[in-house]
Amino acid sequence: APQGAGLGFRELACDDPETEHVALIAVDYLNKHLLQGFRQILNQIDKVKVWSRRPFGEVYELEIDTLETTCHALDPTPLANCSVRQQAEHAVEGDCDFHILKQDGQFRVLHAQCHSTPDSAEDVRKFCPRCPILIRFNDTNVVHTVKTALAAFNAQNNGTYFKLVEISRAQNVPFPVSTLVEFVIAATDCTGQEVTDPAKCNLLAEKQYGFCKATLIHRLGGEEVSVACKLFQTQPQPANANPAGPAPTVGQAAPVAPPAGPPESVVV
């Protein structure tokens, strides 16, 4: 560093409009690069430093906190229309570090790293003892609820067979004892009636994803599942894909074995 160059950075207030502008660019970048889970919204700017960059430009070093919204990463709803996941629904916070270069009036993200952390179950119970608490996706009840809900959805949907792409959220509800799940599905090249082995069904070249919310109520006499899915517009295949070639198989989709039998009571 040249002598007398000072600290090499300038301080900026976290609530300065310039900082907020850069923070919103960071959140937009984050949401455009999310591969799974829920879109994020800016909650607080923790720290900011603006470094001089040689020969030109400035680098914003930014620490921000985000909150999970109720819109899935694949949901095309504008972020402004997505509501923040409330604490009573067991909120999830994102803690992010960004380096963003500003040069010639243009912003470019150089580095992005985020960690998400759910609120503690103790905190949720403190102000809402009966609120549903997040549980792990490999929980037996979660796996069973997702399988049952997907089977119920496919049974009611005589056309395309949808398969599971991702479990996005799962909660235990104490009263009535039930399991809440949110998951992503995708259309396949199979039809509902012909499916014997879902693993052999391939996602369509023009991906059609859907986002489902399901509840399975555990009763003494059996169980009752309800599921509602929102299908998103089809997404064209990437420009570098060979349109004349066979429909690609996507390995990301977790194969879902069909349930052993129909659910005892199904409401769709």
Binding site: E11, L12, A13, C14, D15, T19, E20, I41, L42, N43, Q44, I45, D46, K47, V48, D65, L67, V84, Q87, A91, E93, D119, D123
Partner: peptide
């Protein structure tokens, strides 16, 4: 030492630069 009017310290508390405002809630 008691500060005199006009001292730099007598201008009142300076708002901290960071962290910024919480838009929704902290967890």
């Amino acid at each position: 030492k008691v500060g005199q009017p006009g001292d730099a310290g007598a201008a009142g508390p300076v708002a901290p630069l960071c962290p910024g405002r919480v838009r929704y809630f902290k967890i």
